[in-house]
Amino acid sequence: MWSWVAHRITGVTIFFFLFAHVIDTAMVRVSPEAYNTAVETYKTPVVGVMEVGLVAAVLFHALNGIRIVLVDFWGNGPRYQRQLTYGVIGVFVVLFVPFVWRHLTNVFGG
């Protein structure tokens, strides 16, 4: 239940971000300066931290999506529901922690 709610919320969040992201990237068609100004904002501490939240959303949505596919298509999927959920949490931590470390040292370390 909670993973279904989280899957919805993260899905909608990513969808709205995609809209903004296609528009900021479209600035490459305007001028190099316009584009550079747009990406500059991604390098600020505030947006840098928001990026961590976005990646958390993508990571959860993707891993939980794989879990949904396994439950739907893999014969033993429904039997291992519980293990699959722990798997999602485990792989999330394993991938998320190094990401946060690397990204935040980039953002704050220059």
Binding site: N36, E51, I66, V69, F73, V107
Partner: peptide
């Protein structure tokens, strides 16, 4: 389900190449 699985590769590849390699976000211009 199909697009989701393809997106796993596409999106993580995208994030890795743009944010994790080299100078990360500072390299983007």
């Amino acid at each position: 389900r199909g697009s989701g699985l393809l997106l796993v590769v596409l999106v993580f590849g995208h994030l890795f190449v743009n944010l994790m390699v080299g100078k990360g976000v500072h390299a983007i211009d």
